[in-house]
Design a protein around this nucleic acid. Sequence first.
DNA 1: GTGTTGACCACAG
DNA 2: GCTGTGGCCAACA
Length: 104
Amino acid sequence: MSETFAQKVYVLTRQIPKGKVTTYSAIAQALKIKGAARAVGNALNKNPFAPKVPCHRVIRANGEVGGFAPGPKRKQAILKKEGIIITQGRIDLNKYGYQFKIKS
DNA sequence: GTGTTGACCACAG
DNA sequence: GCTGTGGCCAACA
């Protein structure tokens, strides 16, 4: 399968359950590529599967919402609709942080 | 094939 | 607590 790194990112992002969020770094680790958080963000930025990939459920490792094409404001609003409580523009990864199953 | 860019992360000061 | 610097990776010109 000649799936590119981005394609894998979209698949993982699609697997994120509603009401939960994950970080770019977490996706990178799920792909066994630690440190590729930047590449993950790049893939979501293109986001050819915009309505199919809940890119708004992907936030930064420090708990910030990160960025969003239409605007970070939009991202926060959607997350709030999902049932996620945002405090000071940040999200509690401790509560809503979703972790991918990483095979050793 | 090389260089630049980007919705990032971690560490040091 | 914030700012600055370095490093990682993939996609695009």
